[in-house]
Amino acid sequence: MEDNMDGAVPSAAEDWERAKLLFDARDYIGAARILGGLVERHPEQNGPRLLLARAYYHSAALRRAESELRVLLERDAGDAYAHLLLGRTLERLGRKGEAAPYLKVAKILGA
């Protein structure tokens, strides 16, 4: 957790907004730093975890992306986007055979 300029610790909402801004600016590593702390503090929330997985994917931290996506799919097996991103992650890791079922489910679910 980084302090604000006034020395206060940012709220979860402030961290979320900052992380989204960094992600949108394609600073995926910066976004992942903030999102990692946010996920640690609020592990039950799926939104920050999904954005963290996306930041990991785009920064080529593929094993970390895989780990976060598996958590999301354990919680919600019907998350089409998580299936798609896990399939793409596994493809990038050279595990095409493992990727195929996730990509198939993503397609069926409309991703």
Rank of each mutant, 00 (worst) to 15 (best):
M1Y: 15
M1T: 14
E2S: 14
D3G: 15
D3K: 13
N4M: 10
N4V: 03
D6C: 00
G7Y: 05
G7H: 04
G7P: 07
G7D: 07
A8M: 05
V9K: 07
S11E: 11
S11V: 11
A13P: 03
E14S: 14
D15F: 05
D15L: 15
W16L: 12
L21W: 05
L22A: 04
F23K: 12
F23Y: 09
R26Q: 14
D27V: 02
D27L: 01
G30H: 01
G30Y: 00
G30T: 01
A32K: 13
R33M: 14
R33N: 13
L35I: 06
G37I: 07
G37V: 03
E40L: 09
H42L: 15
P43I: 03
E44Y: 09
E44Q: 10
E44L: 06
Q45T: 06
Q45I: 08
Q45S: 08
G47D: 14
P48I: 05
P48D: 04
R49L: 04
A53K: 12
Y57M: 06
H58D: 02
H58P: 12
L62I: 02
R63I: 05
R64V: 00
A65T: 01
E66C: 11
E66F: 05
S67D: 12
S67F: 11
E68V: 00
E68P: 05
R70L: 12
V71A: 13
L73P: 08
R75D: 12
D76L: 07
A77E: 09
A77T: 02
G78Q: 11
G78A: 08
G78N: 08
D79Y: 04
D79K: 01
Y81K: 11
Y81M: 08
H83Y: 00
L84R: 15
L85V: 01
L85H: 03
L86P: 00
L86Q: 00
E91N: 09
R92H: 10
K96E: 15
G97E: 09
G97H: 08
A99L: 01
A100Q: 12
Y102W: 04
Y102P: 08
Y102E: 02
L103T: 13
L103W: 12
V105A: 09
A106W: 02
K107W: 10
I108N: 12
I108S: 14
L109M: 08
G110Y: 04
